[in-house]
């Protein structure tokens, strides 16, 4: 039976040396983040939001504590297993989209399927279905450079969702978008959380996203406040 908790952090710290001193980017954080909900991480720059996302995604190792994402203790995984974990359990959306410019919208969305070993025709079909669901059907065969910011972020969201991950991490997902496009992306994230039972964890300064989040976690100096 799937736990209602998608992400569990137990006394998690991430410290590193910089400028001759110890930086406590995340310091003794304990949290349980539910499925089927948007959790917004807020706080000033340098408060540890992005580092916390990286820890939840296994992109950075913890200095201390335990991170369990989708029931998997990330501390027990080696690099290859962490890579496979990200592919199958996680979707990541970036503020700057980070689409691959040489690939079309559909090909960008197809990429995780290809990495997962899904055969080409099936991967294409699944990618196109998702592209259509996110309102990008007419743009499936164009390159990212001709897309608007909102379309780029929807493409990035499609890429993040195409392998149906239980957890979606979003770093300032509306940070590069105008108001209408930002609203659109927030709605999509909310739909993914409520209709598909995903845990959406978003670091954001956008008050509209905070207003529609199911839970808001405020951070300051690496701690939850």
């Amino acid at each position: 039976m799937t736990s209602a908790v998608a992400v569990r952090l137990a006394n998690v710290s991430r410290h590193f040396e910089a400028g001759g001193g110890l930086v406590r980017a995340v310091d003794g954080v304990s949290l349980s983040l539910p499925r089927g909900a948007i959790t917004a991480l807020i706080g000033p720059s340098g408060s540890g939001k992005t580092t916390l996302l990286s820890l939840v995604g296994g992109l950075l190792p913890v200095t201390a504590g335990v991170v369990e994402t989708d029931g998997i203790d990330l501390g027990t995984l080696d690099q290859a297993a962490l890579t496979a974990f990200r592919l199958h359990h996680l979707g990541i959306v970036f503020q700057a989209f980070h689409l691959i410019d040489a690939l079309t919208v559909a090909e960008n969305v197809e990429l995780p399927l290809t990495l997962a070993g899904v055969r080409r025709p099936d991967a294409r079909r699944r990618a196109l279905a998702l592209v259509e669901r996110l309102g990008l059907a007419a743009r499936a065969d164009v390159l990212p450079r001709v897309l608007s910011g909102g379309e780029k972020q929807r493409t990035a969201l499609a890429r993040a969702l195409v392998l149906d991950p239980p957890v979606v991490l979003a770093d300032e997902p509306t940070g590069s978008l105008d108001a209408a496009a930002g609203e659109d992306v927030i709605t999509l994230l909310q739909t993914e959380a409520t209709a598909h039972g995903r845990a959406v964890i978003a670091a954001s300064h956008d008050p509209r996203l905070l207003a529609r989040a199911d839970r808001v976690v405020a951070m300051s100096f690496g701690r939850v406040v």
Partner: peptide
């Protein structure tokens, strides 16, 4: 390097 970082982030194995 951004492309390689994206590929790593979305779960591309080292051999890819």
């Amino acid at each position: 390097r951004e492309i390689y970082a994206v590929l790593k982030a979305i779960g591309a194995p080292q051999q890819v």
